[in-house]
Design a binder for these strands. Sequence first.
DNA 1: AATACATATGAACAGTTGTTCATATGAAAG
DNA 2: CTTTCATATGAACAACTGTTCATATGTATT
Lengths: 120, 120
Amino acid sequence: MQAFEPMPHCDYMCAHTDIIERVQAAMPNEEALYTLAELYKVFGDSTRIRILYVLLEAEMCVCDIAQLLGLSQSAISHQLRVLKSAQLVKYRRDGKTVFYSLADAHVRTIISNGMEHVME
Amino acid sequence: MQAFEPMPHCDYMCAHTDIIERVQAAMPNEEALYTLAELYKVFGDSTRIRILYVLLEAEMCVCDIAQLLGLSQSAISHQLRVLKSAQLVKYRRDGKTVFYSLADAHVRTIISNGMEHVME
DNA sequence: AATACATATGAACAGTTGTTCATATGAAAG
DNA sequence: CTTTCATATGAACAACTGTTCATATGTATT
């Protein structure tokens, strides 16, 4: 939160201080909003969305995902790292193979919510 | 959808063709997934998230939003354009002033869903 | 018509992001 | 211990994104 000084290019006959103050009070803190944007940023790439959609159906190893999506193993591995650090996927190791799966139910909810909006 | 030829760096002893085919059949078409990613990309910027949160509370003009968020009128206007073309906000003109508001209820749902995941 | 002002827009620039390529790590099998 | 292979990682590069600055558009007011 910060004091609002007039911006260089605006003289603000239109500024309603009361509304601004009410809205400002209702705003979550900056950090939460930043974190929320970071979360959506992770969903905002079609390769990652495709990976998540694959994992919606079945636990799967890196190679299978790469093959399924027609991308290199490296590309998928890099993206799985992003998904992992956003805590959207988890993994388990079985010998040489690493199986990835969705971290929790939230991921399903978020994706299907977005898809609903897209499909309308 | 595409045939899956082995990738250069993978010999795939691990590839389970049956699972891959099942998942491939369950996948939405590429276009839908791309559109979904595009939608989330719009949410994936903290300035735009903050704008949406402001509009969650009240219809507001460009100048007020700029003042409230401590950003230039130009920056806000550019971002409103992005939000508008993603059909997340709508606007009405009243003289010199343009008031922006949320386009529909989906926006609320999507945001609060994401926030729920962030807050846990 | 001329001015004032809220908003929109185009160009430019820095910062970020996704992929590729080359290489490293880690686990099983010989 | 060496080889094989699935996965991870670092560097590099092109493509994309968000802001700023300068300027244009559109709507009142005089």
